[in-house]
Every structure is written in structure tokens, then in C-alpha cells.
Design a protein around this nucleic acid. Sequence first.
DNA 1: TCGCGTTCTATTGTATACAATTGCGGTCCG
DNA 2: CGGACCGCAATTGTATACAATAGAACGCGA
Lengths: 217, 217
Amino acid sequence: MSRASDRAYRKIRSFILSGEVRPGMQLTEERLSEISGVSRTPVRDAVQRLENEMLLVRSASKRLSVADWSNDEIDEMFTLRAMLESHATERAALRMDADSLRRLREINEVLTNSVNRPEPDITTFLDANRQFHDLILACAQSPRLSKLLPALVEQPVVNRTANQYSQEDLIQSGTDHDELIAAFAAKDQVWAGAVMTSHIRRAFHSFSGATRSTVED
Amino acid sequence: MSRASDRAYRKIRSFILSGEVRPGMQLTEERLSEISGVSRTPVRDAVQRLENEMLLVRSASKRLSVADWSNDEIDEMFTLRAMLESHATERAALRMDADSLRRLREINEVLTNSVNRPEPDITTFLDANRQFHDLILACAQSPRLSKLLPALVEQPVVNRTANQYSQEDLIQSGTDHDELIAAFAAKDQVWAGAVMTSHIRRAFHSFSGATRSTVED
DNA sequence: TCGCGTTCTATTGTATACAATTGCGGTCCG
DNA sequence: CGGACCGCAATTGTATACAATAGAACGCGA
């Protein structure tokens, strides 16, 4: 979208993810327009996008509030993501070209280096990770998937989790990616899809293990 | 959404589906506001929704045009729908209560009656069919799915196809639904999911068989 | 004091005017 | 005659003012 609209989207998004506002809390459009520094018109565009990503929800009568996900919803989110992203991976396996494969290797090189050190560089890891998954999605060549998946991946969880990952988890991610690359090289869609499924399911369990047990403490 | 916005959405939608405009054709926001009889502001809301459903696309520089789906995209659409809707069905199988089950039977009774006659009543069929699938989706109790699926089902294809279905196809739909109901009654999620998958895949092949061969003629 | 209705206020929805951007066409120079 | 540049027209993007609606607070009567 356009400049103001995008600006609003990013500002509001990071505002929500920063944790300054608690789930369930009301947010008026006017408030959001103050936050993002643009008028309500582009704010409304941004809000509609955030509603689709379910970061914002419209309460009974049109009032906006920050989404509050139940555990069941988070489970479901990972499940759907695993389904769709492994499907994307299967498609990508059939359509992968040499250049993309090379690029995937480069990206994963960066990712691996960022975690194979005493103090993992989370920012670099997240960035490389995103690039890796994005490139696969692009190779899947499915406009629909490209529209649906991002709303599911939506960093909320990804980002919140990355800090909770243990270093072994991060290293394992790099290993998963290596195996994905091997599957792509072999043009084996079943293999590739399966690796992606377990990659995501593992992330899910690391996540739910970490956060939920701490909540219960 | 609100009144004008919804009105715009429906008007534009039916305008596109009516076939008055051909895929790829440009549509200015002003034109759309004339069609729907409201100002550009609510039109833009509606447009954003239609973009998500991929009935409209924004070409290179923000100009709107009617979406033009490749065969591959239509295949993908059915594939995704089958994946997600059978997943929804699996969830529903675990959560189905007696009332909903009864209601499903009622709806399918209507559906079956509408096609078991010399001249099938397509309108009634479509309406009952939609209710049937909607109720299952509701029983799945997954806000995410409820958001994702409709954008995929989106009558475009459903409606265009219904007229192309042979009477046997329509009757078979009713039979599929009966089997779904049996699976729900048995609380067998695997069974239910499988029936839904084949239900949709059959629709897909009826569709692509009908339309694509005629195109090639 | 409780329940109900009424008014007032906060919030969202719509229209319109204006700004910015992009495409198109015409013209001028080589 | 061809190509590039410049300027106008069409289209989208943004702001603001106003309308409609839903919620809350207040007061009145039973």
C-alpha cells in the first residue's frame, strides 16, 4: 500500500507486538492515528489488514481491540501453518531452479553462522530465516498461498518465540534447512514437504513448551 | 462491515461475477462508486476485501482490474480448499453436538429435495449447500479457519459451477453430505475428513472437466 | 433502591475536497 | 522518422468535516 497507509500498518503492528498494550485492550482509530502520525483514512486501511492477520479484532459493535489468542487458537495457527507451508514446499520442490537453490544455500549459510557462536545473533537469524521461508514460498508460485501464508506466519509468534528458543533449537533450524535443500536438490516433493512439516511442528512444541510452562509457574 | 461498505461489496462482487466485465479489465474506484451508489471511501473498504478474495487485483501501479485466474491457480484453489475444509471437518467431527447434527440433517433434507425432481432447483440447492458447509465450519470452532476458508470458497467458482453440474453430480452431493453426517454421528474425524476431501475433489473434476473442455472446443 | 428510559458522549462510518502519483500523448530535437 | 522529454489528464492516496450509531451516565418514577 501507499506510504501513509504502510507507515500506519508498521507502526501499529510494532506497537501491538511491543507489548505496550495488553490483549483485549481497546484501541480507537483516533488513538491509532496519533500513534502512526497519519489521518484516520490510511489508519483504517492498516486496521483492515491487521484484522485479517487477526492481530486486531472488532468487538461486538465495531470497536477495535488487541487480539487475545487462546491456546487452542495458537495450536490451530501452527497446524494451519504447517499444512500450508509444507504444501508450498511440495510445490516449490517441483519448481525449484538452480539459482534459487544456490540462493537458499547462501541464506542458510548466514543463518547457520549467526547461531554457531557463543552469543547467537538473533536478529540475523530471524532475518535469514524469514528470507529462507519467503524464497521457498516464492518458488511455490502460488499467488493464493502467498496471500494466505503471511497472515499465518505473522511474526507475532515467530518473534516472541525466537528469544525463547534454546541455542540447540536454533542450530537444529539450520540443520532442517540443510535437509530441505537436499530434498529440493533431489526434487523430492514428499521428502521436502515432510521436512517442512516437522520443522514447523518442532518449533511449535518448543514454543508451547517454553511459554505455557512459564505461565503455569 | 457497515451498510454502505457492505452494499458496495455485494454490488461490486455481483457485478464482477455477472460477467459484465471481462478478466483483466480495468475498473476505477470512481466507476465502482457509481456502480454501488456510495462514495469512494466505503468502496475502498470493499475493494480491499475483494483483493483478499482475489476477485480484484492491483496491477503494477495501484490500478484495479478484474482478476484473471490461470488453470493452475484454479487447481490450487480447489486443492487449498480441500485441505482446509477437510481439516475443518476433522475438527468439527470432534466438536459436533446433537443440535448441530440435527440441523445438518434438516439442511441436507432440503438440499436433497431440491435436486430430486425433474427440474432441479439450483437456487435452493446452492443456498442449502452453503448453509451445510457453513455450519460445519462453525462447528470447527476455529476463528482462523473461519477467516481463511470463505476467501477460498467464495462463490465465484461455486456458482459458476453449479449450473454446470449434471443432475447426478447434484444428487451425489446430497449423498456425500449424508455420509458426512454419518461420520459426524460416529465422531470419526478421519472418516469425516476423507469424505469432505473427496466431496471437494469430485466437485473440482466436474468443474474442470466441464469448463475446460468447452473452452477447448 | 432498583429498573427503565432518555440524553449525552465517544467512536465509527461516509462524503467530499484536495494532494500526490502515474500513465499517456504530444512535441521538439537529433 | 525515431526517441526522449515535458506537461496534462486520469487515478489513486490523504485529510478533514460531518453523519450515524452504540455505550455510558444520569435522572426519574415506582
